[in-house]
Computed example of a mutant assay.
Amino acid sequence: MLENDDDYNDDLPFAADDSAQTYKNWAVPNDLAGLRLDAALAKLVPEFSRSRLTAWIKDNHVTVNGSVVPPKYKLIGGETIQVAIQQDESQQAFVPESMPLDIIYEDDCVLVLNKPAGLVVHPAAGNWHGTLLNGLLAYCPALAQVPRAGIVHRLDKDTSGLMVVAKTVAAQTQLVRQLQARTVKRTYRAVADGTVPFDGKIETLIGRDPHNRIRMAVVPFGGKEAITHVKVLERYADFSYIECQLETGRTHQIRVHMKTAGHPLAGDALYGNPRQPATAEVKAAIKAMARQALHAYRLCFVHPQTQETMQFEAPLPADIYHLLSVLRLQAGMDSAIKTADEWQQRLGTEAEDEDWDDDDYDVDVIYVRE
């Protein structure tokens, strides 16, 4: 399943569907006499595909005169067909589902949460239930009146970190406009393969990989503009700890850009290098993550109502912190820092000493054509 990172730019409303079972009855007209049940039903109920109707017959959701019969059953006319209409999984996608949510800020307009790795943001094929959207509807039922339960941007399933959710249509509209204007600042921290040589800007077009439709890729034309600013925080023997700020928000943007730059993210099953040199301890830490080492660390936006600039940070999750601890230990770095909080505080302070404005970049552009 391809989890989309693109910023939302539309406001299509939705409402949770009623899950109560619906039955419909038809009397078989004489002109359908002699037809098989599946063929006759396709004529009686043209709004559903024949394959779906056949599946319902096989699953005993269709009766003829009160009896279950096979799809090939021949009708003689005058029978009563009853169908228990089955909702698609997609029609159940917006059902509230209670789940723990790490809400770090909330008011009447917005809420900010720290999404764990493994949680799909929005329902889609293969993930109709158990998504963040389902959890938001359970946490705040009023979000059923807001398009996409207030979600305005996404993270990949296996990317952890900060997201902002709008609690009103007006707030969602304002946040979408900020995303379109590229004034929402989203900063990620990640572990990349190899030694990233310098800070810089990656600017390419990103589109669907023509050789593998479940992946995205840098393309020479026809894609969407994608810009990522990369800053190196620490370098180790075979890996680098980096910070990436998104200027745009394309599907898998950081993962694709780092792969294109020759430094895919550690643990990335889709874009990574499974043969990346590493010690047994580092390999074990990467395997234990079971995901790409990518975390949405900092989020900054203008509050839709108060117009106040708000900034939030979410500490590294335990799995990425453990990987970095192993890398630091093997590199003989700063053994006096023993806790995640101490380390996060030091790195956070160092990072904020530098201004992320574009003018401060050395205009080192990494551009690789595939």
Rank of each mutant, 00 (worst) to 15 (best):
K259I: 01
P304Y: 06
R154H: 12
T228R: 02
M333N: 09
I320R: 00
S49G: 09
F221Y: 11
N114D: 14
S240Y: 01
K43S: 14
A20N: 13
A296Q: 09
D334W: 03
S325C: 07
T54A: 06
S67W: 01
D6V: 14
R148H: 09
W356R: 02
I151R: 00
D108N: 12
L53I: 14
A284M: 02
Q92E: 13
T228K: 04
A266C: 03
E342W: 02
L175A: 02
Q92M: 14
L111E: 04
T80K: 14
V164T: 11
Q345R: 15
G135M: 07
L133S: 06
S49V: 06
L132N: 06
W56H: 02
G150W: 02
V120Y: 09
L265V: 03
A336T: 12
D107E: 11
K224P: 08
I214H: 08
K58I: 14
D6S: 10
D17E: 15
Q91M: 11
I85V: 13
I151N: 01
D238R: 04
A237T: 12
V282Y: 00
A170I: 10
L12T: 14
L2D: 13
K43M: 14
V184S: 02
I227D: 00
S49R: 03
D334M: 02
F239L: 04
L37I: 13
L37G: 04
F221S: 06
T251N: 10
I227Y: 11
A288K: 04
R177Y: 09
C300I: 00
Q178G: 03
I202Y: 01
M333A: 07
V302F: 00
Q86E: 15
R189T: 05
N212M: 08
V191C: 02
V368M: 13
Q345W: 13
A138P: 09
P29V: 09
T63V: 11
N9T: 13
G249I: 04
I76L: 09
E281T: 08
Y8Q: 04
K74I: 15
E247D: 15
D10P: 00
D209P: 07
R208L: 15
V121H: 06
K338M: 12
T183D: 12
H229L: 12
D199T: 10
D7G: 06
T22A: 05
K115G: 00
I104G: 01
Y241I: 07
R208M: 13
A125K: 10
S49H: 04
E308K: 13
S49T: 15
S67D: 08
A39K: 06
E89A: 15
H153C: 09
T159S: 14
M310H: 03
R50I: 10
P100Q: 11
T260Y: 02
I286T: 01
T204M: 07
T279K: 00
M258N: 07
N9E: 13
W26Y: 15
